[in-house]
């Protein structure tokens, strides 16, 4: 029983990590109507920036973490300036395809710049796990979960309650209408990408703390995809619930069902949930229902 509860808690915390990475998808979508396929690549770029500032430049963590976040924001801004500003007003298809292009472009660039070598990632959160009776909870995931919940509440408030957040919401509805209402579409998209890159870097720190870093870590981007769709692409608060559900489902499948069937069903459970959600309720749990006109 203790193990069962422990599995549920660990699953929920991993789910919260997925929520944090998925928050990158949602923030970018919520402020620019672009679905960013290259989210996992932003995570490894963030990871490499953290690695570079701590391990290569030898800065202390108190200095390197803020510096990394600033640098990540700059990378996000640069990507937006080079690739997406020019596509404002173009079809959604073009924008999605550009992020698909970015996916392989960034992966190639990371490989060219850093090579395929496996690197130690700095220990940002204490390695010692927390013991609650017989239960064992990983520290980085616990702190990460708390950060995720705080970020979700704060961003949810920002997008739903503040004036500038609502402006960005208007951009997500329609670029042309928003800009004719005097809202800066460019500014909104730039903000989205800076925020998306920063969230990805925080995600990388939680995910990789004390582990090793290779370009393969970007797979977390696709692992987080089902969470974003389950919650609905417009809902930031809903990510918490969706992440926890998917995390627990995955953890229970990995621990109880996989030994029985002798496979790794755990890794595809999120996708099966995603397909089911897309078929039953395509807008996700909390997404917007849109009305279409000709």
């Amino acid at each position: 029983m203790v193990y069962f509860i422990n599995d549920i808690i660990t699953g929920a915390l991993i789910g919260l990590l997925y929520s944090l990475v998925a928050m990158g998808f949602v923030v970018i979508y919520r402020a620019s109507k672009v679905f960013n396929f290259a989210q996992g690549e932003l995570v490894i770029i963030g990871g490499f920036i953290v690695w570079y500032t701590t391990m290569q430049m030898g800065l202390s963590l108190w200095l390197s973490i803020p510096l990394s976040l600033v640098l990540a924001g700059l990378v996000g801004y640069a990507i937006e300036r080079v690739f997406l500003t020019k596509l404002i007003g173009e079809s959604v298809f073009s924008m999605v395809m550009v992020t698909v292009g970015l996916l392989i472009l960034l992966r190639g660039l990371v490989l060219l710049l850093f090579g395929p070598a496996v690197r130690p990632f700095p220990i940002i959160f204490p390695l010692k796990p927390l013991f609650l009776g017989d239960m064992l909870i990983t520290m980085n995931l616990l702190i990460g979960g708390i950060i995720t919940i705080i970020a979700a509440v704060a961003l949810s408030w920002f997008f739903n309650r503040t004036r500038s957040g609502l402006r960005m919401t208007a951009v997500a509805e329609d670029h042309v209408v928003a800009s004719s209402m005097g809202i800066s579409v460019k500014g909104s998209i730039a903000f989205a990408w800076v925020l998306g890159a920063i969230l990805s870097t925080i995600g990388a720190m939680i995910f990789l703390s004390g582990k090793s870093l290779t370009f393969l870590a970007s797979d977390i981007g696709f692992a987080a995809l089902p969470v974003a769709l389950f919650a609905g692409l417009e809902s930031i608060g809903g990510l918490i619930l969706a992440g926890v559900i998917i995390g627990i489902a995955q953890s229970l499948t990995t621990n109880y069902l996989d030994p029985m069937i002798g496979g790794s069903l755990g890794s595809v459970v999120p996708y099966i949930i995603m397909l089911a959600i897309l078929l039953i309720r395509p807008t996700g749990l909390f997404g917007w229902r849109t009305i279409e006109r000709v």
């Binding site: 596509l87 292009g101 472009l105 992966r107």
Partner: peptide, 28 residues
Amino acid sequence: SFLGGDIVFAGMNVILGGVIALFMILEP
């Protein structure tokens, strides 16, 4: 030398990713 054989895969990704983005921006 430090890149080893991965340069082919990496270079392919950079060029193809760049080509997709470039075409979408300049000549969709």
